[in-house]
Structure formats: C-alpha cells, structure tokens
C-alpha cells in the first residue's frame, strides 16, 4: 500500500456523519447513532463538517428537496446513504466507508462538481431572502438586511433563519422559521414538511432518555449524554435523575433551577424512571402554535434546548396517543 492508500485509510478512520431524519424513523436514527459512536466515528453538527450524509427513513417530496440542498453543501470527498431499517445500518456504513476511501472514484466525482457554491443553494445556515431582487444592492440575490424593532424597541438588523429539518437533536420534519436580532428570537413560525397523519406520541423510557440526552448534548455535556443513552434499569435512571438535578453548574448553565428547560428535563428523566404522574403538567404536549409563542424573545440556544425537551411530543401526535 502506498502513501496515498495510507492517507485515505487514516482519513476515513473517523467518518463524520450528518443525519437527515424523516418522520417516524427515530428507531433507525437511534440505531445509526449508536453504531456511529460504537465505531468511534463522529456525529456532525453541520454539512461542512460531514463526510457522509445518512438519510434515515423515507423522506417525502419537500424533505427530499432539502436533503438534496444539504448534499450540495457537503465538501468533497463525500458519500450519502439511505437506510430504512435497523438491520441495514451496519452494512450501509461499511459500504459508505469503502466508497469514501476510494480516492480515484472520489476525485472523479469531485471533478464533475462545479467549484464554489451556487447562488440559490442557500440552506438553513444562510440568509435566505430568495425571491426579492434589489439589483446591484443584492449580490447573488441576497439583498441588504432589513431592520426591525427588537424586544427593547431598538432598530436592529434582522436575520432569517429556518431551524431544521436537517439538524441534530431536532424533531423530524419540523421547520421553525425565525427572525433573529443577533442571538435573540423575534418572530417565529412553525412549518411541517410533507404534513401527513403523524404516529401517536411515544412516551416510552427510551424516547424520554433520548430526548434528555439531546438536551445534555446541546448543553455541552457529551459524556453525561452518552451515559443517559446507555441507561435501562428504572432504579438507575432514577439515580441518574437525582445526579443531574444535583449538578448545580449544569442547571445554572441550562437557565437556572426553576427555568422551563430544567423543569422539562427533569420531567423527561422522571417519566423515563416511571416516577412521574401521567397527568404532570410538565410532561410535554405543546401544539405548534404554542411552540411559536414559547420561543419568541428567547436566546437561540435556549430555543434549541427547549425544542429538544419537546421532541417526543412534537414528532408524534399527542391526541392520537391519548385516544
């Protein structure tokens, strides 16, 4: 094996995986995430950091379009895969790694690709005012930012940020269209891609722990999040819940002991441990309209944490579960 072979083998030792999750595929997504971590690979937070785009489940038309745009944003060398079933995960990852390590094939693919970004392929990260045309004031179709009054009545620049649908720790198929003043949310609108009948909300311990782990991940406590995902036994979950609630610095970082995020995180862990009354008012269930109201005026980071606590209910249909 030559130097080039050694480089490509080393370079694909830790594949960075960006997951695009279609609705009703969370079990496959969890299996994929577990397999990625077991191999010592990395779950990427953004397209620029990814080698592999893993599409989980079967996306509808709208989500499919977004996946194409995200695929355009992956740097070369890149691979994509699609899995619809838990059993396919390991095989699909093996095949993807082999394809990623195939340098000559990757080079051919990269050659056919236009260099530099194409205007209009802007995605979640970028400012998206698509339709408007301001001539010279709008290079690549991006006009000057508009101003609007923020919460304190100051005239500030407005950024438009669609959060989701390809985002870690985020409900599948959900897009939250935000206007931002710096890091503060101004207006919010909820959109569901490929709206169809949703499955009933699943509120089993696995689901709750996964959501709690997402919150811990977003708060920067990776090791604690990994531990939460490994828990099975209710007694140990209960012990874990007490441990998290005793971590003063963590709670303070999440927004303080009485904050919405901490209350809901506690409810998630409580429900997973079977210690929570089903009728507890904290146990989730917000409508899309309520969600939009809930995030207005908050810090962007707080919005991410809050939505992560609500994933089980935002992905499923609460009323169908109750019926």
């Amino acid at each position: 094996m030559g130097l080039r072979g050694l480089l490509s083998r080393l370079a694909t030792r830790r594949v960075h995986v960006l997951v695009a999750e279609a609705p009703a595929a969370h079990e496959v997504r969890r299996a994929l995430e577990q397999e990625v971590c077991r191999r010592g690979w990395v779950l990427a937070g953004a397209a620029a950091d990814a080698d592999l785009l893993a599409v989980v489940g079967s996306p509808g038309r709208r989500l499919g379009e977004v996946v194409e745009r995200v695929w355009d944003q992956l740097p070369d060398p890149r691979v994509r895969l699609q899995v619809g079933h838990v059993d396919q995960v390991a095989g699909a990852l093996d095949a993807a790694r082999a394809e990623l390590a195939d340098t000559s094939r990757q080079r051919d693919a990269a050659r056919d690709r236009p260099s530099g970004p194409q205007p209009g392929e802007t995605d979640h990260g970028e400012m998206d005012h698509g339709e408007m045309d301001h001539g010279d004031m709008a290079p690549s179709g991006i006009p000057l930012a508009e101003g609007a009054q923020d919460r304190d009545g100051l005239e500030m620049d407005v950024l438009h940020l669609p959060l989701g649908p390809v985002l870690r720790h985020w409900p599948a198929g959900l897009v939250l269209h935000l206007t931002l003043h710096g890091d503060l949310v101004g207006q919010a609108r909820v959109e569901r891609l490929d709206e169809g009948p949703r499955p009933p909300s699943e509120t089993g311990p696995d689901r709750m722990l996964d959501a709690a782990a997402s919150v811990l991940d977003l708060a920067g406590r990776r090791q604690l999040a990994d531990r939460a995902r490994e828990l099975r036994d209710p007694a140990r979950i209960a012990a874990f819940r007490r441990r998290v609630l005793a971590d003063r610095v963590l709670l303070w970082g999440l927004g303080g002991a009485g904050s919405e995020v901490v209350l809901r995180l506690d409810a998630l862990l409580g429900a997973a441990a079977g210690e929570l009354d089903q009728t507890d008012p904290r146990s989730g269930a917000v409508t899309d309209a309520r969600l939009a109201g809930l995030v207005r005026g908050r810090d962007l980071g707080e919005v991410r944490l809050l939505v992560a606590t609500l994933v089980p209910w935002l992905e499923g249909d609460r009323e169908a579960a109750d019926a």
């Binding site: 400012m127 991006i142 000057l144 930012a145 101003g147 005239e155 500030m156 620049d157 710096g182």
Partner: peptide
C-alpha cells in the same frame, strides 16, 4: 453591522 442595515455579504 447591527445598526447600519448590512448583510454579511
């Protein structure tokens, strides 16, 4: 940037 109506572009 914040007060003068500018894009990052």
């Amino acid at each position: 940037v914040m007060f003068m109506g500018m894009n990052p572009a």
